[in-house]
Amino acid sequence: MAASDVVFRVKRYRPESGGRPTFQEYTIPYRNDMVVLDGLNYIKDHIDPTLTFRWSCRMGICGSCGADVNGQPRLTCGTYIRDVHKGAVTVEPLSNFPILKDLVVDFDDFLRKLASVTPYIVRKDWGDLTKEYVQYPEDVEAYRQQSLCINCMLCYAACPVFGSSPEFVGPAASALALRYNRDTRDEGADARLARLNTRTGVWECTFVGECSVVCPKDVDPAAAIQTLKFLATMRHMRRLLMPGSSSR
C-alpha cells in the first residue's frame, strides 16, 4: 500500500445470494481533497462495478448519499476522507433501515411517515389562485430552519428511539410538520398535530438529541419535536377546555 493509499472497508449485502452482510476491503489512491463518495465512485469505476450505493448531486443538496461512516451517519459527499481516515474508512448502510443491497437501504417506511404529516401547504379553500399569498421576511424566518431538511434520513439512522420503536414517526417528518405548521399560508396545523399527538407521534421521543448532531443542514429536529410536544399539549388542552375553538 502506497503512502497515499487508503483502505475502504465497505459493508456488502448481496440479496441474490442471501446470507448476512459482510465487509469487503478496497485499497484506493487518495488525495487530500477527496470525499468518501469520491472513494466509493473510484471503487465502482476502477475496482468493483458491482458495488451499489445511492448518490446524485455531490453537493449536499439531494440527500441521497447518506451512509454510516466510521459508525456515524454522514453524507458521503460532504465527508472528507482526511477527516475520517484513521487506518481505514468503514462505510456501512444507514442504521435502523432494512438493507436492499450493499449501501442501499429501504426508505419506504419513512416516505409513508412523511406523507402522514402532509408535508405541503394545506388550505381549506384555495380561492383565487392568481392571487399572491404575501409573506414577510419574518414569516419566512419562522420556518426557514426546518425548511432546509433534505430528507437524507441521517437523523433516523442516529435515533435510538426509532431503532427500538420503528413505528415512531421520527425526526425529519416531525421537523417538516413543524415547518408547515409555522407557514402563515397553511391551514393544516390541527390535523398534523392530531397525527403527531398519537402513540407513534412525537411523544415517543426521549430527547436523545443525536438527530440534531448529525443533521448536515442544522435543521435541529430534536428542538422541532419538543416544540411540537408543546403545541400538541396546547391543542389538547384547548380542545378540552374550549371544545368549540378554532383549529389554529
Binding site: Y13, P15, E16, G18, R20, P21, G71, Q72, S95, N96, F97, P98, I99, L100, V105, D106, D108, D109, P160, G163, S164, P166, V208, G209, E210, V213
Partner: peptide, 22 residues
Amino acid sequence: MPMTGREYAWKRRPGWWLRNRR
C-alpha cells in the same frame, strides 16, 4: 416495518449506547 423477501432486516447491536459519548 414491512419488508420484501430479499431485504436484510437491520438489527441493533448490543452495547449500541457505547458507540458514542452522547
